[in-house]
Nucleic acid binder design. Structure first.
Length: 998
RNA sequence: GGGCUUGUAGCUCAGUUGGUUAGAGCGCGCCCCUGAUAAGGGCGAGGUCGUUGGUUCGAAUCCAUCCAGGCCCA
């Protein structure tokens, strides 16, 4: 030791951290490699095997639409699901995950049609379907890759695909059940209609262009009800004044709607038919007078408001009016909240066959869905004679003329407005009632024993009942209310669409146009679809589709003789895609044997699915099984930008998932997701994800330091139980509390709490307090020193616990870390994802549970309190640490830069021998917790009132020599003659090492 | 316009049945260390708890209004 003053010499005698675990993550490079390895190992299958026979937990995946790249919202959803699945599997449950895709539907068909352009017109449905299928396949593959790049684990080799034959067949099986329950019916409903192409159109197939139309004011003469609600008519003809831009729909008029809350005025005015008493919304009187007066100045002669009443009073008076075009038809006044004062008269012409709102009103008020317009746009025989055979555009002037003749036309004008056009033919569309298929939500189910309930009734029961009473659990809890509200207000479910890309509604029609669609006929077709796919609907004959099915043997048919199989033709409607995805609980969860019976454990989607997939899965499940498909419905909010506004491409505030994956890696993105309270909207931006990256580094470095500190530690050989008064014991309590808190947060799906807890644990308990404190003994003690091994024991436990607890959130990083845990027991699984989450020890927690806040009032350490348990004492010791750190900071500013150059003096109230004894017991730990070179204890009689122990820090540079090995300044430096530059401890270690080397 | 929902420091979150000077971590500022080093540590400054009224001895916590977001409808 001739160069004993040279500290580099001693550096070689220290046990410095040693590990291959990279400080820099390199996620972009490593993650794909780790994912490849998982694939090669068949990790998912191995997890399944390992959990075989364990209690099941089924998170049933809601299928994303197979169109486009995934976006941040999809990533949020999938990662949350993945965390759930991983947590459950690591909790020892058998939690398979079968991802799925929704493949049918308009967006894909639209994309394909647009790509085809004009060529699309001449293509048969089967051709369009094949192209759509190829398109969907492409995006299923793309999204599957993207999900797996996010680290999502599941049965990606065999996902569920709604366009696959077995899935299509399963949907029809559910449908057959609903038919059996008497819930499926056919009825008129207005849809957008292209006269040019004689086809129904979806919203997405409409283009809005400006168009000039005639608008008219027409009077409907009141003929019935309590007309005295209008007051004295005084010879005037009482009439309702309506305004419309589609005079051709007047033949189909069945009612006039008013808003109950509005005030209506009675206006005397001169018309061609003499003086009338017109009902007009009070606020629109002037506007109407101006409009009509401009065209017909005479209208204003004697114009005056003679009275008013509320819309509700008009309704209560049960008024009826004579239809202006049809002799003998009288119609009612009905309420409607969609009536506005923006234009018109505040009274709305209602033709249920020609308008969506009118249709809704008709359902509420029991009006017919009447539509005299045929598919070519011409009027049928029920229309007034002068219109029959004419098309709606020809009809407009003729209707106006007829009204004028009758003296009921007050004026007409031309207006330019935005009007829907068929995107293919560019011709204007109309609203026209057509026959559609529905699922009734208010009809009592037929076949459920002992149930008089309707789907709505059963569904409301599911959300009214509490989870422990066979009801559905909602997370967050307000989902229950929202879900119920949406159920309560929903109309019957229109399940038919007039498109090509979808599952055909298995209705066949005889020559009389009557449908054949019974449970058995549908099941027969289902069997065919299972073999051949739904394309068979377009290529096979009805006889082939029906197979062995014989109408004559079908008890569900009243008149089987009317349905000769060889005379049937297939219907052209397809299912609403929601019916397909809404049957997945059966087509996937049950058909694949994930569950024997519903409900499954969990559905987890965005809160938009309250009205979407959740509701539309519940209804078929109730109709088919009388059971909800889910036990728990968990929703998350939407991804919004950093300022809380919705993301949109046009605003340029979107964050691209793939960009982030390429730039930062999946684990960063996952950590960001896991740290969000997803119940509300989730703010997302470059800065926010960058924060997650910072947090990631902290976590990673903590793990790394733990590994480095345990490089020579083998738990099987070196484990040492931490002594009662060591900081290791304190850390042990912290670890068990961590495990408990994180597992509780996992169980409650509060991943952000789990994540925060672990992150702050790494920052505070681990890095700042514990690891800093034990550095000296790790580095300087001899390798086998009890004190050192005890700390390594705790650090190793902490490392293993953290890696497992973090694995559901950071699967790649934890897999990498798993491979770097020193002396990992040989019987531990190859992958962390096959491991189980750590358990916490109740006994250790109960030590912590003994914590009682030491009364702040007297500030006195009653010895009873000190003896309530280690945790109680440690609370106080940590307070002393805090106080000492503040004083060290002051000392640092006064020139003592290194805390090892300071000594701490703990002052105990004179005479308090027991407090003295306790502090003396913990003195070595306090020394390291403060990072000072030396700590001593002394009695003091100048402590402030209420203080039992205080801490002072002193500059020890003049007082003690500095140990050249541990860098601590303490009185025992030089006490060993062989090592005059070392403290007693370090000198002893050097001697021991020297012996060891000999 | 309707239903549901959110609004606490720059950020992410805690704030128990309304009760003393509203907390944490990060970030930020200043400082230290250089034996976790593209690391680590210490201290500190940040909030009229969205607004305005009200209930109360007392409200971030209860009520009402308004403002600004979000989802779903219309």
């Amino acid at each position: 030791m001739g160069t004993g003053k040279d500290k580099t010499t001693y550096k070689d005698t220290l046990n410095l951290p040693l590990t291959d675990f990279d400080m820099r993550a390199g996620l972009i490079r490593k993650e794909p490699a780790i994912q490849d390895r998982w694939k090669q190992q068949g990790l998912y299958g191995r997890i399944r095997k390992a959990r075989d026979g364990a209690e099941r937990f089924i998170l049933h995946d809601g299928p994303p639409y197979a169109n486009g790249n995934i976006h941040m919202g999809t990533a949020l959803n999938k990662v949350l699901k993945d965390i759930v699945v991983r947590v459950k599997n690591m909790a020892g449950l058998d939690a398979p995950y079968v991802p799925g895709w929704d493949c049918h539907g308009l967006p894909i068909e639209d994309k394909v049609m647009k790509e085809l352009g004009q060529a699309a017109k001449d293509l048969a449905p089967i051709e369009i379907r094949r192209r759509c299928q190829a398109y969907a396949d492409r995006f299923v593959g793309l999204q599957s890759d993207q999900f797996q790049r996010l680290g999502v684990i599941g049965e990606f080799d065999n996902p569920y695909i709604t366009m696959h034959p077995e899935y299509e067949a399963a949907v029809l099986e559910v449908f057959a059940d609903l038919i059996d329950q008497g819930l499926v019916y056919r009825q008129l409903k207005p849809v957008h209609w292209s006269i040019e192409n004689r086809t129904a159109l979806a919203d997405a197939e409409l283009e809005y262009h400006d168009r000039d139309d005639v608008s008219i004011y027409a009077a409907f003469k009141l003929v019935g009800g309590q007309l005295d609600v209008l007051g004295e008519c005084d010879g005037a003809t009482p009439a309702l004044l309506v305004w419309t831009t589609t005079p051709w729909t007047l033949p189909a008029n069945l009612a006039v709607a008013v808003r109950p809350g509005y005030t209506y005025a009675f206006v005397r005015a001169a018309t061609a038919k003499g003086t009338m008493l017109l009902v007009i919304a009070e606020q629109l009187v002037e506007k109407v007078a101006a409009a009509v007066g401009a065209a017909r100045p005479a209208f204003l002669q004697g114009f005056q408001v003679v009275g008013t009443c509320k819309g509700q009073q008009l309704l209560d008076a049960n008024l009826t009016y004579a239809h202006p075009l049809l002799e003998g038809r009288t119609c009612p006044v009905v309420p409607a909240e969609y009536v506005t004062l923006d234009d018109g008269t505040g009274l709305v012409h209602t033709a249920p066959g020609h308008g969506a709102e009118d249709y809704g009103t008709a359902l509420k008020c029991g009006l017919d869905i009447y539509c005299p317009v045929q598919d070519d746009g011409t009027f049928d025989a029920t229309a007034p004679e002068f219109l029959r055979g004419k098309d709606v555009w020809q009809a407009n002037p003729m209707v106006i003329e007829a009204l004028d003749q009758a003296g009921m036309l007050l004026c007409q004008e031309t207006i330019r407005h935005s009007y829907p056009h068929d995107w293919r033919s560019k011709t204007p569309t109309i609203f026209r009632a057509t026959k559609q298929w529905f699922i009734a939500v208010d009809r009592p189910l037929r076949g459920m024993t002992g149930s008089e309930k309707s789907l709505r009734g059963l569904a409301m029961d599911c959300c009214r009942r509490e989870p422990d009473d066979d009801g559905v659990e909602f997370i967050p809890a307000w989902g229950r209310n929202r879900f119920a509200g949406m159920l309560d207000s929903r109309p019957d479910w229109c399940i038919s669409r007039q498109r090509s890309w979808g599952l055909p509604i298995p209705a066949m029609f005889n020559e009389a146009g009557e449908p054949l669609m019974t449970p058995n006929s549908v099941l027969a077709i289902a069997a065919t679809f299972e073999r051949l796919g739904a394309d068979a609907w377009f290529t096979a004959t009805p006889a082939e589709l029906l197979g062995d099915y014989d109408p004559a043997a079908d008890e569900a048919l009243d008149n089987p003789e009317a349905f000769a199989v060889d005379k049937l033709r297939c219907g052209k409607d397809i299912f609403d895609v929601w019916f397909e995805s809404g049957s997945s609980w059966y087509a996937v969860a049950m058909k694949r044997g994930l569950v024997d019976t519903i409900p499954v454990d969990l559905y987890l989607e965005g809160s938009d699915q309250h009205r979407g997939w959740f509701q539309l899965s519940l209804l078929p499940a109730l109709g088919s099984r009388g059971q909800a498909p889910f036990r728990t419905v968990l929703t998350h909010g939407f991804v919004v930008d950093e300022d809380g506004y919705k993301m949109s491409k046009s605003d340029g505030n979107t964050i691209d998932v793939i960009d982030q994956l390429d730039k930062r890696g999946a684990d960063i993105l996952r950590l960001w997701i896991a740290s969000q309270d997803y119940q509300d909207d989730v703010r997302c931006g470059e800065n926010l994800i960058a924060k997650a990256e910072d947090a990631y580094r902290k976590i990673r470095n903590t793990l790394r330091f733990c590994m480095g500190s345990c490089s020579d530690f083998d738990p099987a050989r070196d484990t040492v139980e931490p002594t009662e008064h060591s900081v290791d014991r304190w850390m042990l309590m912290q670890i068990h509390q961590l495990i408990r808190d994180v597992r509780e947060a996992f169980d409650a799906y509060e991943f952000h709490k789990a994540t925060r807890r672990m992150y702050e644990f790494c920052t505070v308990e681990a890095s700042s307090i514990y690891l800093s404190a034990v550095k000296d003994r790790l580095y300087c003690e001899s390798p086998d020193a009890i004190r050192r091994r005890a700390s390594q024991t705790v650090i190793h436990l902490m490392l293993c616990s953290l890696v497992k607890l973090l694995a559901p959130i950071l699967p790649h990083t934890c897999e990498e870390a798993w491979g770097h845990i020193p002396a990992k027991p040989a019987d531990w699984p190859e992958s962390v994802h096959l491991a189980l989450l750590p358990e916490y020890d109740e006994d250790i927690l109960s030590l912590a549970g003994d914590i009682r806040p030491v009364s702040a009032d007297d500030g006195k350490w009653a010895l009873d309190e000190l003896r309530t348990g280690p945790a109680g004492i440690w609370d106080k010791l940590m307070d002393l640490r805090g106080a000492g750190l503040v004083k060290l900071e002051a000392l640092r500013n006064a020139g003592v830069k290194k805390t090892l150059d300071a000594e701490a003096v703990f002052k105990v109230r004179a005479g308090d021998d027991e407090a003295m004894q306790i502090i003396e017991t913990y003195r070595p730990e306090l020394e390291d917790l403060l990072g000072v070179g030396y700590a001593r204890v002394e009695f003091a009689d100048d402590l402030p009132d209420g203080t039992t122990v205080d801490v002072e820090v002193l500059d020890s540079r003049e007082r003690y020599e500095r140990c050249a090995r541990s860098w601590k300044r303490r009185p025992d430096v030089g006490s060993n003659e062989k090592f005059p530059d070392l403290s007693a401890r370090d000198a002893a270690v050097m001697e021991e090492l020297g012996k060891g080397r000999q």
